[in-house]
């Protein structure tokens, strides 16, 4: 089985189709459509990488990101947004993410960034082990 991903986005058609494409390539994908479900999902089944929409109804991606950073600082988070301009990924909490991508995301770029994010976690884990 490939990497385990959590995808959280309220644009259901988008995220469901993205998940199917990833599953065809051997990824294990869990899809949720709001921020609160994203937090619950991580607690129940820790992914290798969490991919969050920046502007979900209710609990937005930035708040989910902050909470995940607090609870699971080693979990890499990739943000996706349909918003552009300075307020999208430019500053603030989004800076805590591994990467912030603007929709529509090129699929091969997405795969590359998610793989890099997972490797960054693996690398951090090895470093911790060697120091421990």
């Amino acid at each position: 089985m490939g990497l385990k991903l959590l995808l959280a986005d309220d644009e259901t058609e988008y995220v469901d189709t993205l998940a199917e494409r990833l599953e065809l390539r051997g990824y294990e994908v869990k899809v949720v459509h709001d921020g609160t479900s994203a937090l619950t999902s991580v607690e129940n089944d820790m992914p290798d990488v969490a991919v969050l929409d920046l502007f979900m109804p209710g609990l937005p991606g930035t708040k989910v990101l902050a909470e995940l950073n607090r609870r699971h600082p080693g979990l890499p988070v990739v943000l996706i947004t349909g918003q552009t301009g300075e307020n999208a990924c430019g500053d603030g909490p989004a800076q805590q993410a591994f990467a912030c991508l603007t929709k529509p995301v090129d699929f091969s770029d997405f795969i590359r960034i998610v793989s890099d994010a997972a490797q960054s976690r693996a690398g951090a884990g090895e470093e911790e082990s060697s120091h421990g």
Partner: peptide, 25 residues
């Protein structure tokens, strides 16, 4: 305008993934 562009990008994202999945298959 920002809201509309956000919505437009979401529509484009759905199109890209739907076409991508059809292409994969």
């Amino acid at each position: 305008l920002a809201s509309a562009m956000h919505e437009l990008r979401n529509a484009l994202a759905v199109i890209r993934e739907c076409v991508g999945l059809a292409s994969d298959v």
